[in-house]
Design a protein around this nucleic acid. Structure first.
Ligand SMILES: [Zn+2]
Ligand SMILES: [Zn+2]
Ligand SMILES: [Zn+2]
Ligand SMILES: [Zn+2]
Lengths: 161, 161
DNA sequence: TCCTCATTGAAAATGAATGTCAATTTCTTT
DNA sequence: AAAGAAATTGACATTCATTTTCAATGAGGA
């Protein structure tokens, strides 16, 4: 069973457990979501789906992504731009992001020492921390080389607000 | 000269340097901004201002906050909610945030060891990192005690998307 | 098959933020 | 002080992502 299949199965179980129904649309949407790369927006997913099934509305894509979040199978993220991007299954493999503010590239990374930072801050302030989000903004390798580190903002690149 | 005064002065210099004008509205808005606590939204600031000066439009509050960002005196932040909150003068004292998902409290903290995390990720992936954002989500001291760590979501509390 | 209730999608609504524009204000130049 | 160019203002309209509404359709248990 592929990684995707396991997730699709977990979603089916979530639906059953919650008294919700399996539909053609939900099936297509979750498949497309897990097949797509990471960090897709609802709109992007919607467009991909149009090629294989015209009868899927953007609204349903939004609704299904919300269900995926509730099922713990996806997380929404706001990098510099105006819309939400969705990351599959982050609980299994927590990770953070490097975002190039010039070309918009998003690179994932993982750092175990973050846990120490989390715990230290939490302990000193009495918080119980369950989740975190770390975003590093700057230039990717290519953009550092091309721009010499100078901020050249293309319209579509994310920017740290 | 108070801390606020110094910032107000810097804003005046920014305006002059950029060929922009000093107005009653801008003056009121920046004063209210630095007087207000951290993490206010444009709307919140607008409402505070209404009590002292009815003739200030929400649009002008938005525009002035944008100027404050351009002047390097404020930063916009999106915590779990749908609108932007503004943080005064973050460049001088970089800091990150702990956000209680139950009551919405936002607590600031600073951790020097984050720099190492930043550099490590950047070096290994060829990025040049200029900025970062770390948000820790969980329960504050009171909410941990009251809720026993159970997620009780009030409508207004921020939530990690 | 029937029947109930969830689901769907089109259209409308929302809500934050920005663009438009005529009237007003600032500030430099006489 | 008066004038004039240019910036600023705020009411209004607009954008854009996301949510809500609602009548028609579909799923799945009895
Ligand atoms: Zn990711
Ligand atoms: Zn790049
Ligand atoms: Zn802050
Ligand atoms: Zn709390």
């Amino acid at each position: 069973m592929s990684d995707s299949d396991a997730r699709i199965q977990r979603f089916a179980e979530f639906l059953a457990r919650s008294g919700l129904k399996t539909t053609r649309q939900r099936d297509r949407i979750v498949r497309a979501f897990f097949a797509a790369g990471r960090h897709v927006s609802a709109e992007e997913l919607y467009h991909r789906l149009q090629t294989e099934d015209r009868g899927i509305g953007l609204v349903t894509v939004y609704r299904t992504l919300k269900l995926l979040r509730e099922a713990g199978l996806a997380t929404g993220r706001q990098f510099g731009d105006t819309y939400t991007r969705f990351d599959p299954n982050p609980a299994d493999r927590p990770h953070d992001h490097l975002i190039c503010t010039r070309c918009g590239k998003i690179q994932e990374f993982e750092d175990a020492s973050l846990h120490a930072v989390r715990e230290k801050a939490a302990r000193s302030l009495g918080f119980t921390v369950t989740e975190h989000k770390l975003e590093l903004y700057g230039f990717c390798r290519e953009c550092t080389r091309l721009a010499g580190g100078r901020p050249v903002r293309s319209g579509k690149a994310a920017r740290p607000v």
